[in-house]
Simulated assay, not measured.
Amino acid sequence: MFQQKSFSQLRPVAILCKVIATLACLVILLLVDIHHDVPSALYLWVILAGLCCWAATKVRSVGTLFILSTTVLAISAGCLAQVALIIGHPDYWLLPIGLMLSLPSAAIHIRPLHYLLSGALIWATDFYVIQPQFERPLDALLTLLAVGGALLTGVAVCSAYRHIRRTVFELQQQLHALAYQDTLTGLPNRRAFMEEVEGTGGRGFFLMIDIDDFKQINDRLGHAAGDQVLVEVGKILRATSPRHPIARLGGEEFAVAASVPDLAGAQLLAQAIVDAVHALQTHGLPLSVSIGVAERRLGEAAASWMHRADGALYAAKMAGKNRFVAVD
């Protein structure tokens, strides 16, 4: 999930950077062409880079985006190196071209290895086209040290940004859990449940579930035992309603939005929950739940649907608890 999130965040920036690089190459070629003869093949390479930028808007995988992005950078390095040969003194342009293309791209690569491969290809293209002639061994050594330092710096930057993205992603996940998940049972909370139910808008059956005499459990056995009961009831709901939205609404109240074809199916589900909870023993005490079942009317708001299920729950309590009551 983190990789996909990083991909969705970085792809627009990566595409924009590649478009800028392609346009920059085109502008430089046009300017140089005014005073020097620029081979037509260089324009074809720029067109190919533009096609790669367009293709990058369609991809859905990290690997394909990396290949297209690296291709654009390599083409840009090759074109700029050819321009350096045309205007003369190409050795002076070796480091500026490599640094200009390799270092800024460190922040937009998803993985450090991707950056290292891309940066190495940029420098390799730069060296291959220009083929610098070093008058002194020291010049060659210093140039290689500069290239190695640039690559290591880029890897460090890419790793740092990846760490920051992962930290932010984990914080977002934690905030989402706090906002949409019940911390005790791990079930969705009221907010998450209501958003999901409102989003569907279809027909179904609302099961409003309340643990009978829960206050007595807390008073007699303590809140730790009460928390254990809530957790166990949550497990039962997961087991009996694996395909339906479920939630802890708060306190001892739970809910299921059952997507079953008819009332008979909803009644079977409600009875299965009642039986499963009643079979549960905690600290020697039998447990039970009361359930109100209401079918959603066409176009009915979730709040109204819940209110009718709550009325059916009250009727189940009045009828003796440990049962369900369904209303039209």
Rank of each mutant, 00 (worst) to 15 (best):
Q281R: 10
Q228M: 12
A258P: 01
Q4R: 14
A124L: 14
A315H: 05
Y92L: 15
P90K: 10
V83A: 00
T167Y: 08
R323H: 07
L280G: 05
R238F: 03
I28P: 00
D182V: 07
Q174G: 10
V260Q: 02
T70V: 06
A315Y: 00
R162Y: 05
V229Y: 04
L65G: 03
F169V: 09
P112S: 08
R190D: 03
V147R: 02
K215W: 05
G63A: 14
F206G: 05
L23I: 15
D262Y: 11
L237F: 08
H163Y: 07
L138E: 13
H278G: 11
L113Q: 10
V231M: 10
L263E: 13
Q228K: 12
A56D: 05
I75S: 07
Y128K: 05
A294S: 13
A279Q: 15
S304Y: 10
C158V: 06
I246W: 00
H307P: 00
G222W: 07
I164R: 11
C17L: 10
G226Y: 01
L298R: 14
H36T: 01
G299T: 14
Y128Q: 12
E300L: 12
L138N: 09
R166E: 11
R60N: 15
N218A: 06
W305S: 05
E198M: 10
A106R: 09
R11G: 04
L103I: 15
K58Q: 15
H307V: 00
S159D: 09
R136F: 06
L26F: 09
A179L: 12
C17Q: 01
L313E: 01
G311R: 08
I87Y: 02
E196I: 04
Y92W: 04
A303G: 08
L29F: 04
L73F: 01
V197W: 03
D91P: 01
P261E: 11
P39R: 08
M306D: 01
T143C: 13
G154E: 05
A106L: 10
V293S: 00
L73P: 00
L178T: 15
Y128D: 04
I217Y: 07
Y92R: 14
A309L: 07
I130S: 01
E253V: 10
F206R: 08
V233L: 09
